[in-house]
Write a protein that binds this DNA or RNA. Structure first.
Length: 683
DNA sequence: GCAAAGTGTCATTAT
DNA sequence: CAATAATGACACTTT
């Protein structure tokens, strides 16, 4: 879902939707994606649709694999989709189950699936019909609202965005959310029902939240009943299952976000075809739960037109740069320098500094600080356990002290851009859930990959473009975002939140500091070093990656000698640590085996002792019996004169023929000697 | 406070 | 020859 939101925020979704509406068909054409790949479109998303994954989406700012950049969405080790978010394949199947020729690639689609998953298939189906029915009338409005900026008639693509909503329009949109929807037939009635329900959710946020949770649960159940492929895609790893609460929150928020899109869009299409999209504000969003509870809705209106215009700007950027090298209009760059989210680009004079697919946040509206904070407050602190090293990098406060302006004023600073990212309210908000489009775009999007500050590469901006897009290594994607805009935190209205992942309530300051202390303390030396030098890879990754990948990483990216040395040291120490552990384990095993052998030998020795004792006992018994027999025989023997034979002077000897002779012992002794001598001679 | 065990690291050697 | 594994030794931490 985050991917969808990000993609949507980046402009691809709305642009696409606009095109679709202009065609009068609410259907996504895959070819359109291929022609105009949204910069943030995931490779996984393409894979799910059978599209190309490598070349066309090298611009994707999302790392192909997780680890440092998963941000709670990507698996730290793998490349699977976010299990918490309904994968595109799920969405596709869900909507296909409705029998509607519809490829869910937009937030609207996602909402439809969301409704379907919540057991409201009829509602979603009706919405599809309503959307299709109203698209003919609404297409004009969409094209007027977005197409104007797309075609750049005014020369300043931000003109549409810069136009604020009138207060009256906002109030009207808030006060009469459904009254503006004309009765356009059965489908429209169903749509009105849906819209009414959605707006009731605004007034009863708790109920809405409850419904959303129930919908999420039903969605999970529904997803589990899908085919095996879907289950494979949606299969949650254990580590993800532990974040069920977080995931639920995310889905919940995202669901709200999606409903906003659909609601406002359909309201626009059905009720105000003559108006532009500017009449719709984010205030119509039925924010639920903690979001809407703690915020003044009027203070958090982000106009839909802003999103459109900014998406259009992205589109324009793509069109202007068919070679995927983004070049900003210098006029636009300087025309409104007061826009904080453009300041970064204003500093970038070298076109090569603009990496393809980067600076997308520059087109995104500034996030509302309240929204960001309130969203973050919903987050469970336990998510920190799930944040990997690099997310920590972006959130730790040890870098917070560096002002971003310092970074730009001191190009030699090694702190790099990620310092700024650490100031953003990024990691946590982004990694978990963003309540609004703008929030996602302004904060989370950039921070995910500002780890590209690898090496504090601002001093060598020309090197930033040396990114091998053919590389399948996820790190490639990392470096594409070193020039992300991070300047919105300079907004004076949001000085605190910009340096915090989210706002900590007063009592939580101690918890926060304690957490940060613990976090730092729990980091190993290498992890701290890597964090200090902004190595965009986790220590585990550095150690475990194959040597080819490691060398490729070292050669592909422009790392400082210090960073290269650190990387090699980390790898060497890490491997040696593992080797030492194995060695000790092996040594312990050897010791245990030896102990086992000693025990066995001791037992065997005891047994042999017992056997010997038994043998000796038997031998003694036999001796005694032989002696008794000897005595008995001699007691019965008599010599020629009838006297008893002295056994001390005579002995019994068996001859070869079996006869027994009584001979003097002297002869017996001499005979033994002769036999032994003969035996020796024979040998 | 001490001793033993555990752990990380370095140097060296082996593979 | 480079990379890695294996291992003794040492320092430090934990139990």
């Amino acid at each position: 879902m985050k991917h969808l939101k990000r993609w949507w925020s980046a402009g691809g979704g709305l642009l696409h939707l606009t095109v679709l509406l202009s065609l009068g068909v609410l259907r996504v054409d895959l070819d359109l994606y291929l022609l105009l790949p949204p910069p943030t479109l995931l490779r996984d998303e393409l894979l799910l649709l059978g599209g190309p994954a490598s070349s066309a989406y090298a611009l994707s700012p999302l790392p192909a694999s997780g680890g440092w950049g998963r941000g709670g969405q990507l698996h730290p080790k793998g490349r699977e989709l976010d299990p918490a978010a309904p994968p595109e394949g799920q969405l596709l199947r869900k909507v296909r189950a409705l029998g509607v020729p519809f490829i869910p690639r937009t937030r609207v689609d996602a909402w439809l699936v969301h409704s379907v998953a919540a057991g409201d298939a009829d509602e979603a189906h009706g919405l599809l019909g309503a959307a299709a029915a109203s698209s003919a009338g609404g297409a004009g409005a969409s094209v007027d609202g977005g197409g104007q900026a797309v075609q750049g008639g005014s020369g300043d693509p931000r003109a549409a965005r810069s136009r604020p909503l009138g207060a009256g329009e906002e109030e009207k949109a808030l006060a009469e959310p459904t009254a503006q929807v004309p009765d356009t037939g059965g489908c429209a009635s169903e749509e009105n029902e849906v819209l009414r329900e959605k707006h009731e959710g605004v007034d009863h946020s708790s109920q809405h939240e409850e419904n959303e949770e129930r919908a999420s649960a039903q969605k999970e159940n529904s997803f589990q009943q899908n085919n095996e492929d879907e289950n494979k895609i949606a299969e949650k790893p254990d580590w993800e299952a532990e974040k069920s609460t977080e995931s639920r929150n995310e889905r919940h928020l995202n669901g709200t976000d999606i409903s906003f899109s659909l609601e406002d869009l359909l309201q626009l299409l059905s009720s105000q075809p003559e108006n532009s999209l500017e009449g719709i504000s984010l205030g119509d969003i039925p924010f639920s739960g903690s979001i809407s509870d703690g915020m003044n809705s009027s203070a958090h209106h982000v106009t839909f037109s802003q999103a459109i215009s900014q998406d259009v700007n992205l589109h324009e950027a793509i069109l202007l740069c068919p070679n995927n090298t983004f070049i900003r209009d210098p006029v636009a760059k300087t025309s409104q320098p007061q826009e904080p989210f453009l300041q970064f680009n204003s500093h970038t004079t070298n076109p090569e500094q603009s990496l393809p697919g980067t600076n997308l946040t520059g087109f995104l509206p500034p996030v509302d600080n309240h929204t960001r904070n309130l969203t973050s407050q919903d987050l469970d602190l336990s998510i920190f356990d799930e944040i990997d090293l690099m997310s920590l990098l972006a959130t730790e406060n040890d870098l917070d002290q560096i002002d971003i302006s310092q970074l730009f004023d001191e190009p030699d600073s090694e702190s790099g851009l990620s310092l700024d990212s650490s100031r953003n309210s990024t990691s946590i908000t982004k990694f978990n859930s963003s309540p609004s489009i703008c929030d996602e775009g302004a904060t989370g999007y950039s921070s995910d990959y500002d780890l590209g500050a690898v090496g504090g590469y601002y001093q060598e901006p020309s090197k930033l473009c040396h990114v091998d897009h053919d590389s399948g290594f996820h790190g490639d994607l990392t470096f594409q975002h070193v020039t992300h805009n991070h300047t919105y935190h300079l907004k004076p209205s949001a000085p605190q939140s910009t340096s915090e992942p989210f706002s900590w309530p007063g009592k939580s300051q101690k918890i926060r500091s304690r957490y940060l202390e613990d976090t730092d303390r729990n980091l190993s030396r290498d992890e701290r070093h890597a964090k200090a030098l902004h190595i965009p890879f986790s220590v585990d990754e550095i150690v475990r990656m194959p040597v080819d990948s490691f060398n490729s990483m070292l050669s592909r990216y422009y790392l400082t000698d210090l960073q290269v040395s650190l990387l090699r040291d980390i790898r060497r120490r890490g491997k040696n640590k593992v080797a030492a552990q194995n060695c000790r384990k092996r040594k312990l095993d050897i010791i245990l085996n030896l102990e086992y052998d000693v025990c066995n030998l001791q037992a065997k020795k005891e047994m042999l002792k017992r056997e010997r004792a038994q043998c000796n006992k038997a031998i003694n018994i036999m001796k005694q019996k032989l002696h008794d027999l000897y005595r008995d025989i001699f007691s019965r023997l008599r010599d020629d004169q009838g006297r008893p034979v002295n056994p001390n002077l005579y002995a019994l000897q068996c001859s070869h023929d079996g006869s027994i002779l009584i001979i003097p012992k002297e002869l017996v002794a001499s005979g033994h000697k002769k036999e032994t001598q003969k035996g020796k001679r024979k040998r």
